[in-house]
Design a protein around this nucleic acid. Sequence first.
RNA 1: GGGCGGUUAGCUCAGUUGGUUAGAGCGCCUGCCUUACAAGCAGGAGGUCGCAGGUUCGAGUCCUGCACUGCCCA
Length: 917
Amino acid sequence: MPQELSKAYEPGAIETRWAEYWVKEKLFSVATPPAGETRPVFTLLLPPPNVTGRLHMGHMLNQTQMDIVVRWHRMRGFITLWLPGTDHAGIATQMMVEKQLQSEGKKRRDMGREAFIERVWDWKRHYGGAILDQMKRLGASVDWDREYFTMDENLSHAVREVFVQLYEQGLVYRGNYIVNWCPWHETAISDLEVKHEEVPGKLWEIRYPVIGTNEFITVATTRPETMLGDTAIAVNPKDERYVHLHGKKVLLPLMNREIPIITDELAQPEFGTGAVKVTPAHDPNDFEAGKRHNLPQINVMDGHAHMNENAGRFQGLDRYEARKRVLHDLTEHGFLVGEKDYTLALGKCDRCGTVIEPRLSEQWFIKIKPLAERAIEVVQNGAITIVPENFRQVYLNWMANIHDWCVSRQLWWGHRIPAWTCTACQHVTVAREAPLTCDKCGSMELEQVSDVLDTWFSSGLLPFTTLGWPETTRDLDAFYPNTLMITGFDILFFWLARMIMFGCHFMQGHRQDATIKKASGEANRKDDSVPFRHVYIHALVRDAERQKMSKTKGNVIDPLEIIERFGTDATRFTLAAMAAPGTDIAFNESRTEGYRAFANKIWNAARFMFMNVERIGGGAGAPARELQNMPGIAGFTAITLEDRWILSRFNRVAADVHDALAAYRFHEAANRIYDFFWGEFCDWYLELIKPRLNMQGEAAKAACANLVNLFDAALRLLHPVMPFITEEIWQTMYEGNPPAKSIALMPYPQADVKQFDLGAETEMSILQDLIVSVRNLRAELKVEPKVKVPVEIYAHEPEIRAMIDHNRAALERLANVEKITFVAGSLAKIAGARSTARFDVHIVYERKIDVAAECERLKKELDKIDKGITSGQRQLGNQQFLAKAPANVVENLRKQQQELALLHEKTQSKLKELGCR
RNA sequence: GGGCGGUUAGCUCAGUUGGUUAGAGCGCCUGCCUUACAAGCAGGAGGUCGCAGGUUCGAGUCCUGCACUGCCCA
């Protein structure tokens, strides 16, 4: 391959090519580490996207961050396992296929369970891989050989095992409880799947006649149709208004049932009339109260939220129709006595938006407290660390107030609960495999419970089931606990919390391979049952207006469309650069545009390098892999000031990037690399070495070799964030004979403290100041860009003067200067001179400066200087400050004050000289 | 109702344990097609860090209150 890049940077072409290459070459496949493995291990589980999913920005943010961390670790020599897979997503998938059926005029129930499930599998085989293909476009460096699906046989087997074990341990129970019922999906859903929304509504007041008196008792309700199932009226025992009615009964209007007045804390005297209706079958609080008082539970609705046979003449009506009719009838009979506007928090199904109906039904639950206790402990004792730290408290609070988990769903698609009902005696047998006979009566007439498990039940097991559990495997020894979990806070409770509970419970007593654990830097961790040792919670991606993206709002930004326009690298860089921990990301296209420009910059810098390598030939070429594994840039020979400077700067950026990535400060890492590459390497270093590259012989070869080595290291530094462009350039550099199959398998640059050069950095910054000052003056004097000007420089420190003299070629080139004269006295008084504490510079040019403008500029500058002087003096004159502030702060302030004083003097005299007012 | 976050340049955002004269990108203004790059280069304007107090030698950073705003939980 010739060392040549196309003139234009076109991300689309190179990205798809490398994405395919990485997958085809199985570059990221990880073999099970053998016993005695001494390398560190890094394990990360991909939060499995829904099999029905389409890639959205949230996925992309999540995957970008994971891929950065993963590539970083891999390059640092960790055995890095990133495990991908998809989730069967019970409700979502079932819905998707049902809709498909609907369009064919078919219905799930007409088909029957088996045919329907076969149909879903069909769908999965055809379309289920879409999101994974999209992931490939992102460059996610996962191990595709280990891809899983939550309904795979081995994972399903593990699910049954877990359920049965929990059952045997008494942590599963079944019973009639109030659950959140979605009438659209016709299934129970968990508390987490209900979203509360404040909506304007009404509060109706209904009066119930008290039997044996001519009194009424008035209650308030937002759901009058449920009164049909009332089985009591409750008043607070302390409420004096109702003491005389204790023990009496009321006649339930419309139904003409007698129901008791009970005393219960359920009724709060300060709310409404202080009396409440009690409907145990349709409200969780009423349900509890009903149990306390042994009240009957009358369910008045069916699974579609239509009124059932218990609703008398309202049977068959939809709940809202029933509400209208009930209100109408109540009014007609004089029972409705009030109607007020009221804001209610309406629970809606997270997926379809249908208003949830609290409904009494038979469901399966996990007794969660025992699991939660361990899950609290491992976070409190540091076995799991959560970043950012505030989520630790969110997690602990939630865990402390956790409710039993309803795990049964009235769906067909999912892991069917391994329980069988005996048609003879109704006893339920829970077993790993279909039992032949009933546990209790021995009947052979058994029927499997039709419910399936909540999708999160199986995904909560993934950290260990994907590694082979319930078998004891070498993979578990090596890779469990996973090192890290990166996810959004939106599934903190859904998923993360459950993984921790399940992991700690089922992996109790597990020990990670001690050698690997130590090598991975986790030797001090005591508890190996946790699913992962570190958690990083990232923010949400919002649209440019900070709105949460949603299909209904139509403000969804499609990452693939952004990628199409700007490239994956630029999109990844955007997400990384904006991902400051703890704050949401308002996705802003203009940033991506900017980062595409950055990629373009890199591209062109590479073209420049290749041009020179081609021309200069020989001697150019990156050092061997062994050398690249050493800190700093091993093959770099610091000859000139700019060499020493860039080497020092490179080591600093490498150190900073390491620290930033170690703390999940992706934005810092990205910005640091950006500033280095563009602001230092391209803007200054490349410009400064051009003359050397244009020389003949060894000097050019040496400069070119440095350039290549530095470029190679910079590409490796950038690779985790922008994998594609770095791969493309890197592969091109090695002319088809690279030291590894991919830059992704090369060592990550490490800082070498010995290559820090503070002296070079200081000198360079003075030189930069000088060049900028001259450019400044040129602009101010409106010197034609092509005209070279003579300059006069005064530098009172001899070593600085020498340094400038030594680098006069740089000044001449970069500021378009033709003759440099060092003068003996300060130039500060000269109109149109520029001064810093280290030098004065002046350009010799016949054109006069704009005195008024210069005066204004100088005055502004003087203001700033004086402000600094005043505050500095105040501090330095303060004994408290001198006594309490750290020595280096005082020292720096003193130095700064000296410089400011000098600048003040120079500026002042210039103002005077110009005759400014 | 309880909890958590945000408020910094026209816009989008950085600014980790308090410590020089608060930064970037985009946009804007001026000038350049300078042989890597006009997706670029050079120069420039632009902020009393939401408001009011407090702690401190020193506050964008810590504390209290308020305002606005977003999210989570009930």
